[in-house]
Nucleic acid binder design. Structure first.
Lengths: 230, 230
DNA sequence: CCAAAAGTGTTCATCGTACACCCATGT
DNA sequence: ACATGGGTGTACGATGAACACTTTTGG
């Protein structure tokens, strides 16, 4: 049964702002690609794709990320719908942007290469096509808000991580140094991290204890009205 | 120049969650209408409409609100894009939801009546069609976050308002009572309100002083890193 | 004169912030 | 033995929360 049939339709796309972090480095990164089709062929862009009639927006966003990285269960959140008439030089397209968080080492780097994609530090972003710059800025703003009030930083780190690694992550997100005593105290005070009996020894001679985020504990606390706040 | 022409297109709509407040009452309200077309004819719904190829999403959202209320410059913010395949029983439609804030007395109430629209307290919401319930819940959550951290409460009140009126507004948004001493102190401490030499005397015998929100002052403070926080 | 809403200050606990030294170990 | 990053405690000021009485005036 089709109602509404007299109304004009539009192209609908999704674009993905994919954030990544490597626990041994100090920079938050973005996965960008060189477009291999017109218009703007050869220029830097976000990964995107059209939404087909039989898939949801969320489904299309997942498909896009999965095509590029091979990963299936990635943290993803809708960012914003961009809908200016002239936003895409190739025609009238409404684009719904999503952002994703992933561990740089976990994905299929061959697949990424095949698509002409590269990890670029958020501090060294090239010029991007269309309104992709705006999308990235909005995503960064949202990420910064989210990371303070939801435990999503852990999506960017392996299951086992050290407190200094987590601190470097937060410093790379907010681009400001944190006091390590205050950072550690506040974090541990929430009671969400389990200390493991194992040390990471790549980074320092002394070694730093690994911790693990306890999601179950987090959900219990949420029930009781707890709010993550860093 | 048309690229991408081989891809299928979709119907794109906007739906508007329109919040309103009347400074002499105690309830936050929502503007709802009885649908006068199929499917779901006769049931409660949000105001919505299709996006045409030559208008932006924001433009479509403004048009919708203006058609219903006669108002031109209304506070409006994009909420979320809803895109499940089966969300609308009448066909595959991607809907971008916006929410608006307005003063109930300011709009053209004749126009609203003609559309079969009614102001309904957010405490007494009827069942809504499709995923409009979800849209409203999301809008309420977002409004609650925004009202704490941005001076948008003033969009729901006339230029001149009293502190008790503002407090009733916040109480109706958050559905909790506030301590009037703390509320007043914190608010005035921000230095954003100008006290007028005039009292509102409908509500009480003593009368409450009118205040005015100083937007210019607000923007100056923002420059200096100030954050609105109630 | 009284009912009804406006207006006003203080105390206490909590939280954020600033800050400097010792520890463990690989080279 | 020394360089490097990991790990720890305390003091102070700011902020949020709780709480009760006086003022004004229309009826």
């Amino acid at each position: 049964m089709e109602f509404y049939s007299s109304h004009p339709k539009l192209l609908v796309a999704v674009d993905s702002i994919i954030f990544g972090f490597n626990e041994y480095e100090h920079d938050l990164k973005l996965l960008l690609l060189k477009r291999n089709f017109e218009p703007e062929k050869g220029n830097w862009s976000l990964m995107g794709g059209f939404v087909s009639p039989n898939e949801s927006l969320d489904g299309a966003a997942q498909r896009i990320v999965s095509q590029l990285t091979g990963l299936d269960k990635v943290y993803m959140e809708q960012l914003y719908a961009f809908g200016n008439v002239e936003r895409d030089a190739g025609g009238r397209i409404v684009s719904v942007a999503y952002f994703s968080l992933l561990k740089i080492n976990d994905h299929d780097s061959e697949l990424v290469k095949q698509h002409g994609a590269h990890w670029v530090s958020v501090n060294e972003l090239p010029e991007l096509i269309f309104d992709h710059q705006e999308m990235v800025e909005k995503a960064l703003r949202k990420l910064r808000i989210r990371a303070r009030t939801q435990p999503i930083g852990f999506e960017l780190l392996p299951k086992k991580f050290t407190i200094p690694q987590l601190q470097r992550l937060y410093e790379s997100i907010y681009q400001v140094p944190f006091d390590k005593r205050n950072f550690r105290r506040k974090l541990l005070a929430m009671g969400l991290l389990e200390k493991l009996n194992e040390k990471e020894k790549e980074t320092s001679k002394k070694g730093a204890y690994y911790y693990r985020f306890n999601r179950q504990k987090y959900e219990e606390l949420i029930e009781k009205g707890f709010n993550f706040d860093l």
